[in-house]
Design a binder for these strands. Structure first.
Lengths: 217, 217
DNA sequence: GTCTATAAACTGATAGAC
DNA sequence: GTCTATCAGTTTATAGAC
């Protein structure tokens, strides 16, 4: 199971009315995330989401006009989670520590929010038809900024030369795989589901190979 | 576009009747693969598959009784493709050459069969409900066999010690991401779709980082 | 705000004429 | 083998009573 989605508190003191509404919306978003993660957009049904949220179907439509709108809310929550990953890839940081921290943070995200990761992965696999301009704008900007930092480290002779963009593709893939393809990993490891120790081992080895691979160890 | 799926020739000399049937079945499997890749199992509709295969919907049901059966055929074709990847991870091989070859082959697979890779990825993301015992049997056996080889290389002091299973998770992820998440990668690279040079660069850098990371360079 | 009943569209699958 | 017509079931979404 995943942690329930938080419904951004609207700042000002909330009365019991607003509190109740917020609690329901949080339940809806959590239920929606789990159903979308399991079945994808088309496969998810509003009835199932309502059932998991513990409310009648028409009430779900009262809070969220359309399935599309509900999906967009879930997706936006996930993108914010993704971008806000505290990372320390900054010019004045130590490269080895920065990459180690980034890998650990990403695997931690995969462990704590596997459903969110899967909804996002599903969206990408099918060509990102509902992702709007996130990839072209927000993500590209993010990568451009971080790439400059890495280029700086390379020029300063602190690490082996690399194409930072492909490095990120590799880091994203190697870490998110522990959320997106958890069934495959669990099956190969002979488990029913991944244990904390599995994620720790994954982070350790991934960090080791990447750091050595970048000439940082 | 993907290469059309080949319909395993039934050996013996085929008459024009069988040839016609084989051609139609190949068209159906190719259409099915593309629709399943785009929309997932639930999102894919038999009408759309029939339309893309250029035949009326009832004819599609004539060749493939149910949507489930059609999906299973597509899936099986993909699994065979996956397992048959010529790899040189064998005890008497040179580790550096073997890993370099494996990475190149996997990225080549991602380039040549992106749709197949996406259907498989989609299946895994949603918990592999239609994958039968492939993960627990065929794949686990494959990994166990290859892991022994790698353990041997480690014991012989040819490379740094690693958990071979997590190494495979990393290699699979880092290579398949160029098929599964191609939209994301293309967007970040500022392209409409990936160019041959992008795959080459990916293979080169991935190999470099992995080999160095394993103490093979 | 909540719920019963239902509309309107689409789905996988088939019957049966050719 | 091929295709027209259609069935039975589900889907998203809403109307309207409470």
């Amino acid at each position: 199971m995943d942690l329930p989605l938080e419904s951004g508190d609207d700042g000002a003191a909330a009365g019991p009315r607003e509190r109740a509404r917020a609690r329901i919306e949080a339940k809806i978003l959590g239920a929606a995330e789990s159903v979308f993660a399991e079945h994808g957009f088309s496969g998810a049904s509003m009835s199932e989401i309502a059932r998991r949220a513990g409310i009648p179907k028409p009430n779900l439509h009262y809070y969220c006009k359309t399935k599309e709108e509900l999906y967009q809310r879930v997706l936006r929550h996930i993108l914010d989670l993704w971008l806000s990953t505290a990372d320390e890839i900054q010019a004045n940081a130590d490269p080895a520590a920065a990459f180690a921290h980034y890998i650990a943070a990403k695997i931690d995200l995969a462990r704590r929010h596997p459903l969110a990761s899967r909804v996002f992965a599903n969206e990408l696999i099918h060509g990102a038809p509902r992702l709007g301009d996130f990839l072209e704008n927000e993500l590209q900007d993010w990568v451009a900024k971080k790439s400059k930092v890495i280029d700086g480290w390379v020029k300063a002779g602190k690490m082996h030369p690399v194409d930072p963009r492909h490095l990120f593709f590799m880091l994203w893939a190697a870490t998110q795989t522990y959320a997106d393809f958890a069934v495959q990993i669990a099956a190969v490891l002979g488990r029913k589901s991944l244990k904390p120790a599995d994620y720790d081992r994954a982070a350790l080895q991934t960090t080791e190979i990447v750091l050595r691979g970048l000439g940082l160890k």
